[in-house]
């Protein structure tokens, strides 16, 4: 049971500070999660902390390999509404 950081990670350090299990470590080309230490925050928090602060969509995967923050989840704009949102923003 462990989350994973994948290569869209931008090395912003945010997850490193909030992990209750000290499971996240600096590596190259990006931060990684020690699968032996990661508990998915079970017992500590309602939601995995790294995925709750990560600013990049698709950068953290859950144990089944699915992105915890899929496309559109952090901008708040679902992909199918992107065109409309863009038009609205460009009319400002």
């Amino acid at each position: 049971m462990s989350l994973a950081i994948v290569d869209s990670c931008v090395n912003c350090w945010a997850c490193y500070d909030v992990c209750p299990s000290d499971a996240i470590y600096q590596s190259s080309p990006h931060f990684l999660i020690d699968t032996k230490k990661c508990t998915e925050c079970e017992g500590d928090y309602a939601h995995p902390q790294c995925a709750s602060i990560c600013p990049i969509e698709q950068a953290i995967l859950d144990a089944s390999g699915m992105p915890v923050n899929p496309y559109g989840s952090l901008t708040g704009i679902p992909p199918e509404l992107l065109e409309d949102a863009m038009q609205e923003i460009q009319s400002r």
Partner: peptide, 16 residues
């Protein structure tokens, strides 16, 4: 201070 606790729409967290 690399980490941030909010997202602003004018900021790209890839700061390097």
């Amino acid at each position: 201070a690399p980490a941030c606790n909010i997202q602003c729409h004018y900021c790209n967290r890839k700061y390097d």
